[in-house]
Nucleic acid binder design. Sequence first.
DNA 1: AATTTATGTCAGCCATATTGACTTATTTCG
DNA 2: CGAAATAAGTCAATATGGCTGACATAAATT
Lengths: 177, 177
Amino acid sequence: MADINSSSAKIRTAGQDGAGAADDVREPDLDFELIELLFFAYRDFVSDPDTILAEYGFGRAHHRVLHFVNRNPGITVTELLDILKITKQSLGRVLKQLVESGFIEQQTGSFDRRQRLLFATTAGHDLAIRLAAPQSHRILAALEKLPAGSEAAARDFLLQLVNDTERAEVRRLTAKR
Amino acid sequence: MADINSSSAKIRTAGQDGAGAADDVREPDLDFELIELLFFAYRDFVSDPDTILAEYGFGRAHHRVLHFVNRNPGITVTELLDILKITKQSLGRVLKQLVESGFIEQQTGSFDRRQRLLFATTAGHDLAIRLAAPQSHRILAALEKLPAGSEAAARDFLLQLVNDTERAEVRRLTAKR
DNA sequence: AATTTATGTCAGCCATATTGACTTATTTCG
DNA sequence: CGAAATAAGTCAATATGGCTGACATAAATT
């Protein structure tokens, strides 16, 4: 293997040139710590259900859809799209698979017959609970190691991270029960 | 459009049948609230840099690679794979693009000449900062609305969400400066 | 009656991830 | 020294989950 970059151009190094703080790597006004912790926490948090999902040939997209349908019985397709922030086509594929495999059922709306209200079947509910369990255990295990009030603090922090325009809706969806 | 599911099978509904709490939707032992808040917070948090990335034809994968290279000058490919938890092939593609477009440079390791140490170029550093800025602003704006101590509480909570096996390493990577 | 809305679907494309096998260079170890 | 292990790069094939744009149908609204 030949050497790479033997004539090194302008790269940034971590000091050690004895010239003082001229090439300081720190960027003190940016909260890298929380940026990275959000990445690492989410990385491990979403990986929990993967082995369960693999049993059914499902992916994380199926998980998200099933979760919010189970939690919001009778939700419409449009409402689901607003939550997931994906396109109709992207949702359509996984939703169809969940319906065909018997985890979600559709009912024509009684007020507005254009709507297809979505419900988890018993199997869908059971699977949603199985998928939520390891994530919930991870959260509760974390909170057990932290002082009282940490759950409320975490809730408040995460809610404030949500877009201003979405916060009321997210509060409604998450805090209702 | 024909009706769907006119002969409805076993679906779960949200009460309203006058039969009491027999089909209660709540699952009191699962922390759905924090599960969902993590989803919503992360959904909006990672969307911040998208428009900047689109300027360069990059995606979120490029962002993650550039971020951790910029923050860890001289990181090896193996270390980067451990952080991102993706395969060598997945990393290879985006890393190659970042090198070819001049945001990351490689240097042969001096101790171990098999290694390719990764560094952000000046352009890479500048882009990494541009990408981190809206995420950091989102975090700081959230913390401004919350009581003192919320930053430490958020940090502690997120760190505890990380896998036990990874926590020490994540602490080392994030808390170092 | 015309328009808007909710949903579904087609065709195609792109980004990002996977596995498994294999190569090269280099280091480490017996 | 020679064998084995390691770091990195690459190949081919495949899957998932996003996207756009266009179009169709049914039903509600104006």
